[in-house]
């Protein structure tokens, strides 16, 4: 955005600068008019609810008896400390983040690296095929994976375990989060592939002449060059793993979120109508997610190489 700065030295009050000033004021107003829908939406749908949740979290607000609301201080937060279910669902949420995000990132990066090769045939079809599961509704995925892993008639049992005479595996249900993670790589894969394809070929040629092998080239050219794309996909995957919606919505209701903390908040809210306690839980989750977000953004300065931005080009 170009700021046309009107003559800074106040002494120079020429006609032209007054005109420019009013023009920039006019366009600032028009611009504000254009962003107004978002500003209103931000206040109504984000700022007020977040603050309201904070206020609720200090009260004993219950949907059944809204008239009995009273201020309870930190009682809800202290209750969380003694609530085993809250603790385990919070760890479950962090656990899913720790499990799913590396799977998504590595699978997407590896796939993008393979797709970057000139030797691969049928790229367009393959790209769509690998992207396709990322838009399948979560319910359909649940139906499919349940059918695969169900003991007895499930296909994993019939096609793999019975013919090979393997002992019945214990952790078959772990396939749920793993398949879910693997079937969510679409956006990250496309973003990283796009970034890889925009790396100038000459850089690779120069490295090849200097004797760098394929692995060396990948680690010291490709990865740093696409680090903004890696960062972007990391953020997207993080949001998704905590049950949020970034780019693509998998269509999981709150009560069945892959992030257990989210389901637990919905459970407290809709089974007990305990809005005060649910708000306190939501704030704990909010702080945890924000903490991880800040950590990721802070870490960016050590490993993300943002392209040099032009002086005149502001955000």
């Amino acid at each position: 955005m170009k700021f046309s700065i009107p003559a800074r030295s106040g002494a120079d009050e020429s006609d032209a600068s007054v005109k420019r000033l009013s023009l920039s004021r006019y366009s600032a107003r028009v611009g504000f008019l254009f962003i107004l829908p978002w500003v209103i939406g931000f206040i109504l749908l984000k700022a007020i609810p977040i603050l309201a949740a904070l206020v609720f979290s200090f009260t004993s607000f219950n949907m059944l008896h809204p008239e009995n609301i009273r201020f309870v201080g930190l009682q809800n937060y202290l209750a969380i400390l003694h609530d085993r279910d809250a603790g385990s669902s919070l760890f479950g949420s962090i656990g899913y983040f720790v499990l799913a995000v590396p799977i998504e990132m590595i699978a997407a990066l590896g796939l993008a690296a393979l797709f970057n090769s000139d030797w691969l045939r049928g790229k367009r079809l393959l790209r769509t095929l690998f992207f396709m599961p990322s838009i399948i509704p979560a319910m359909a995925i649940f139906f499919i994976i349940s059918g695969l892993v169900s003991p007895g008639s499930g296909w994993i049992n019939r096609l793999i375990i019975e013919p090979l005479d393997l002992p019945p595996p214990a952790g078959l249900y772990m396939l749920f989060p793993i398949i879910f993670a693997l079937w969510t790589i679409g956006p990250g894969f496309l973003i990283m592939l796009g970034a890889m394809q925009s790396i100038p070929r000459e850089i690779y040629e120069a490295a090849r002449v200097d004797g760098a092998g394929p692995i060396m080239r990948f680690v010291s050219i490709t990865i740093p060059m696409i680090s903004p794309a890696i960062f972007f996909s990391l953020v997207i995957n993080m949001i998704t793993s905590f049950g949020g919606v970034a780019l693509l919505d998998r269509g999981l209701p709150y009560s069945q979120s892959l992030s257990p903390m989210e389901s637990y908040i919905a459970y407290q809210m809709f089974s007990f109508l305990n809005l005060g306690y649910a708000s306190a839980l939501a704030w704990v989750m909010f702080l945890v997610v924000m903490g991880i977000t800040v950590a990721i953004f802070r870490s960016a300065r050590y490993w993300v190489h943002f392209p040099e931005e032009d002086e005149n080009v502001e955000i």
Binding site: Y254, E262, I265, S279, M285
Partner: peptide, 10 residues
């Protein structure tokens, strides 16, 4: 980045 849960209750 704001999780949906936080705005859900209000």
């Amino acid at each position: 980045m704001v999780p949906d849960s936080i705005t859900l209750v209000p």
